[in-house]
């Protein structure tokens, strides 16, 4: 098991290295004259050359990449070209906001999707039909459109919720929960509809397995079969579904934060992208990849623990 984790961790680090190298190359070779972009059209060639030297852009790409990598390993991701704020510290203030939302939404998705999906698989009938229709509707409307509609109807028209959610947790838990409600709902609707549908299929697939019939023939009760055997076997599929949704949500949350004016990763990423502020863009990509690798590692470990073939060896 430890060997298995070490192997997964190793391959995660390789992915991190490859993605950082590719992103770095992509960003720094295709953006045209970076120094001129920063200084504007009025700058003289001397000023541009000085700026390039200042930013280290006169060095070969490989040298620059390894310089960046060395700094990054010691926790220094460089500074924004426009605000001069260190990337690491702006990430540090923004990641908690984003991660709070993402994890709140994911936990709710996991609970709701599992409950609804299992109910649809076991009871069939109208629950099942609602899940089927819900999945189609959920797939049809992107999360940010749901977010925009929620703000328009529930916040602006009806005034039930604040339209923007810049309140920090210190204000008091009630106001904070209140202001986080709409963005979290916008994040989780697609996840619940899609997740419930996929968990339903996974459970039905397990219920049709031969061993379930044999367990019934041995006099084991339906409840025990469902909770001990079927759900356990369906769990890896469910975990994979949830991990894919979490990865997708790292992108979706960018737009949701923009809609609700939340001070998370979203506005940082959008501004940096619009300005081609490359150190910040690099920082955003690295944060994303690290989250993805950690999530995948956790899912692998959980699946390994659930699957005796991996656990034993």
């Amino acid at each position: 098991m430890i060997k298995f984790i070490a192997k997964r961790l190793g391959s995660g680090l390789v992915v991190l290295f490859v993605v950082s190298a590719l992103t770095f190359t992509l960003l720094y070779t295709s953006s045209g004259s970076i120094a001129r972009n920063i200084l504007g059209d009025q700058a003289t060639p001397e000023q541009v050359a000085f700026k390039e030297q200042e930013l280290g852009l006169d060095q070969p790409l490989v040298t620059r990449y390894f310089a960046w990598l060395g700094d990054a390993l010691s926790g220094n991701l460089g500074a924004s070209w426009f605000t001069s704020e260190p990337v690491a510290s702006s990430l540090a203030t923004r990641i908690p906001v984003t991660m709070t939302m993402v994890f709140t939404a994911m936990i709710l998705i996991a609970i709701c999707a599992a409950l609804i999906g299992v109910a649809a698989a076991v009871k069939r009938g109208w629950v099942d039909r609602v899940v089927q229709v819900g999945a189609i509707v959920g797939d049809s409307i992107p999360g940010y459109v749901i977010g925009v509609l929620l703000v328009t109807i529930l916040a602006i028209q009806l005034g039930f919720f604040p339209a923007t959610s810049t309140i920090s947790p210190e204000v008091g838990p009630e106001a904070w929960v209140y202001s986080m409600t709409l963005p979290v709902i916008a994040l989780l609707i697609n996840g619940v509809t899609g997740g419930a549908q996929q968990i339903r299929s996974a459970v039905i697939k397990q219920l049709e397995r031969d061993y379930v019939r044999t367990l019934r023939s041995r006099g084991i009760g339906e409840r025990e079969i469902l909770f001990k055997h079927v759900l356990r076997s369906a769990a890896p599929a469910g975990l994979t579904v949830l991990s894919l949704q979490l990865i997708g949500m790292l992108g979706g949350v960018v737009i949701i934060e923009q809609i609700f004016a939340l001070p998370g990763m979203g506005p940082l990423a959008v501004t940096a992208t619009g300005q081609s502020d490359l150190p910040v863009v690099m920082g955003v990509v690295m944060y994303t990849v690290v989250v993805v690798i950690v999530v995948n590692l956790l899912v692998d470990i959980l699946n390994g623990w659930l699957n005796p073939k991996v656990r034993v060896s």
Partner: peptide, 16 residues
């Protein structure tokens, strides 16, 4: 598969 689509597109936008 491990990269969120929107983040990649933001990077592409920053580059191109």
């Amino acid at each position: 598969m491990s990269l969120p689509g929107l983040i990649v597109l933001l990077t592409i936008r920053a580059a191109f």
